[in-house]
């Protein structure tokens, strides 16, 4: 029974990972791409790992999968902040559909 539920989780995870990669290709600039990749890949990969845990149970691989979920949830948003901030400071512009950029206004004086 838990095998089937695990496989369902893995399928959901794969679906969201694919969406994340598709977003990486289709969306226009760094910041939008980060949005798609961070959100979808975090939940997608966590879902795959949780499915793996359900399939293999409380074994060595199962514990590792659970640990990886915790680390992924903690680290992937932080990596996204770092990339977004670095890109903005390095002068990467927002795409031309953007409506507002408060960050650039506040940072004009510095640099």
């Amino acid at each position: 029974m838990s095998d089937i539920i695990g496989l369902v989780f893995i399928s959901i995870g794969l679906f969201f990972d694919v969406i994340g990669c598709l977003g990486l290709v289709r969306l226009p600039d760094v910041y939008n791409r980060l949005q798609a990749s961070t959100k979808c890949v975090t939940l997608g990969t966590c879902s795959i790992l949780f499915g793996t845990f359900l399939v293999v149970g409380f074994t060595a691989a199962g514990f590792k999968a659970l640990m990886c979920m915790a680390f992924l949830i903690l680290t992937s948003p932080v990596a996204a902040h770092a990339i977004a901030r670095g890109a903005h400071r390095a002068g990467v512009k927002l795409c031309k559909d953007s409506v507002v950029d408060e960050y650039a206004k506040d940072k004009e004086g510095e640099a």
Binding site: L27, Q35, L43, L94, C95, V99
Partner: peptide, 26 residues
């Protein structure tokens, strides 16, 4: 919220005309 975020991104990415209106706010 995380689950809703994924549905939201999936909708935006799969929509043929990319309904986005990005910007940085304070």
């Amino acid at each position: 919220e995380c689950f809703k975020a994924n549905i939201d991104v999936a909708y935006r990415v799969l929509h043929p005309r990319l309904p986005i209106r990005p910007g940085i706010v304070k």
